[in-house]
Computed example of a mutant assay.
Amino acid sequence: MLGFVIQRLLQAAVVMAVMSAVVFVGVYAIGNPIEIIIPPEATQEIREATIKRFGLDLPLWEQYFIFVTNLLQGDFGRSFIYNVPVLELIAGRLPATLELVLISVVTATLLGVGLGVYAGYRPESLIARGIMAVSVLGFSVPSFWVGLILILIFAVNLGWLPAGGRGEVVSFLGVDWSFLTPDGLSHIFLPALNLAFFKLAMMIRLARAGTREIMLTDTIKFARAAGIPERQILTQHLLKLISIPIITVFGLELGSTLAFAVVTETIFSWPGVGKLIIDSITVLDRPVMVAYLILTALLFVLINLTVDLVFALIDPRIRARGA
């Protein structure tokens, strides 16, 4: 097991090293932030001083070397626009994105697996057909359209829920959370529903396919022949056998939703990291853009590493192959 862990950690380190170079070169090759930071009426002396202060007069390789050196010390630099440390800026927006993503992905997974297992266990029932129709709809419509329709129905026409914002927050463990207040819950309901819709459809189809496949295996036939109750077969045998693909998709969807909840946060004016990166791209705030992409890559690497370790604990064959 130790060799398996060391191998995965080395792979993660190589991936992060390559991603840091790709992200840095890619972002710093886009535009010139000085044209946005400095007003047109600024003198040449002010322009040169500003360029030197941000280190933009140095060769790209030297800028990258300084960036990596600071990065290894936990310093992602300072925002060009907000003039605060980038990590501090992202950390201030992260709780809003984190609670939105966790609520949507966890809800979609729990509900989707349950509905998918039922649809696979009773495929000919009317309820199962309705469940599959919902999953088809979830795959067919774009998320921005769903968000606009949700706002139109529940916020504009019915007036039941707010159209945007985060609402009232309460501090817990030094962090502001909105889902702990009734007003915050009313604000998070629509964006969480919008984010969860596609994930729900994916989990339904994944769980249904896995259920249909497993129910035809000898394992289930032998369990039934042994007189094991159907409820026990579903909870102890079926769910364990379909758990590996579900865990994989859950980890990847959690990471992708955290990284790319941009559309939902923009539509619902949710003050999270996604909206921050859109604003940073607009004004070419390079340190924020680089830090966001590096942290996103790190997030996916950590999630994949965690999923691999969970697989190794569930299935010893995976651990043996990776040793």
Rank of each mutant, 00 (worst) to 15 (best):
L299N: 07
V310M: 15
G274L: 02
L241R: 07
T235Y: 14
P271T: 11
V310K: 07
A261N: 12
N304P: 00
P271E: 07
L241D: 10
D285C: 05
L238G: 01
P271H: 11
S243T: 10
V249Q: 05
W270V: 10
T266S: 12
L298H: 01
G255E: 12
L254D: 04
V263W: 01
V262F: 06
R231T: 11
G227N: 10
G274M: 04
S256R: 09
V310H: 07
I278Y: 14
S280E: 08
L299W: 05
A259Y: 10
I303K: 01
T306H: 09
I303H: 02
T266Q: 12
F250Q: 01
S269M: 06
V307P: 01
L258V: 11
W270K: 06
E265S: 10
G274I: 01
R286D: 02
E253W: 14
L234H: 11
V283Y: 14
K240N: 04
L293I: 14
N304D: 06
L309K: 10
V249S: 04
P245D: 03
A297L: 03
L252Y: 07
T257I: 13
T282H: 04
P287L: 13
L309V: 10
A261T: 09
R224Q: 09
A225N: 02
L239W: 08
P287W: 10
I247H: 02
N304Q: 07
A223T: 10
L276M: 15
T282S: 11
P287I: 12
L241T: 12
V273K: 03
E253S: 15
V283D: 11
I246S: 03
I244W: 08
T257R: 14
F260S: 09
T266R: 14
A225P: 00
S256K: 07
E230G: 09
I228P: 05
R231W: 10
W270T: 08
V288S: 00
A226E: 12
Q236N: 12
L302P: 00
F260Q: 07
W270E: 08
V263F: 01
V263L: 09
I246Y: 07
S243Y: 09
S256D: 00
L302K: 05
V290H: 05
T266K: 14
V307C: 04
I246R: 02
V307Y: 00
F300D: 09
I303F: 04
L299D: 02
S243I: 09
A225G: 06
L241S: 15
V262C: 04
A297I: 04
L238C: 05
I242C: 07
E253R: 15
T235K: 13
